[in-house]
């Protein structure tokens, strides 16, 4: 069973590492809609998938955050990707599996996964 002692060990280990944080203006933001509509449609595993995959892939220039309802409830779960200097990309009807594709192809590969993008 995990105890708080273990957390202290993690802290001590991390204290010796200097965190590499990218500059604000170079940061890509992944924003997951987490209002009632999003949650009911399955946004929680989508958010978890993005957070885990971004961490696992060491994408230090990507932050994963959440937002409320943007008024397109029928397309939830919705994920918006804001890349510096580029137009916002809105992915709709997302799942954890689709999130993996977006991480690999878009966030890592630089190619928007157009099949999940909603037309403006």
């Amino acid at each position: 069973m995990k105890s708080l002692e273990e957390l202290k060990a993690i802290r001590d280990k991390m204290k010796n590492q200097v965190g590499i944080r990218s500059e604000e203006e170079n940061t890509t933001r992944v924003v997951v809609g987490m209002a009632t509509c999003g949650i009911a449609a399955g946004a929680r595993p989508v958010l978890t998938a993005f957070s885990d995959l971004v961490q696992e892939n060491g994408l230090s220039n990507v932050t994963v955050t959440q937002t409320g309802c943007i008024g397109l409830c029928m397309y939830e779960p919705i994920v918006e990707v804001y890349e510096p200097g580029k137009e916002k990309v809105t992915y709709v009807k997302m799942t954890a599996e689709k999130a993996e594709e977006v991480v690999n192809l878009h966030l890592k590969g630089g190619n928007v996964v157009t099949k999940y993008v909603i037309d403006k």
């Binding site: 995990k2 273990e6 957390l7 993690i10 802290r11 991390m14 961490q55």
Partner: peptide
């Protein structure tokens, strides 16, 4: 209190 200014989002902390 244990972590101080180390973020909950850090990979190891979040996993823990």
């Amino acid at each position: 209190e244990i972590l101080g200014d180390i973020s909950f989002k850090e990979y190891e902390v979040s996993n823990y």
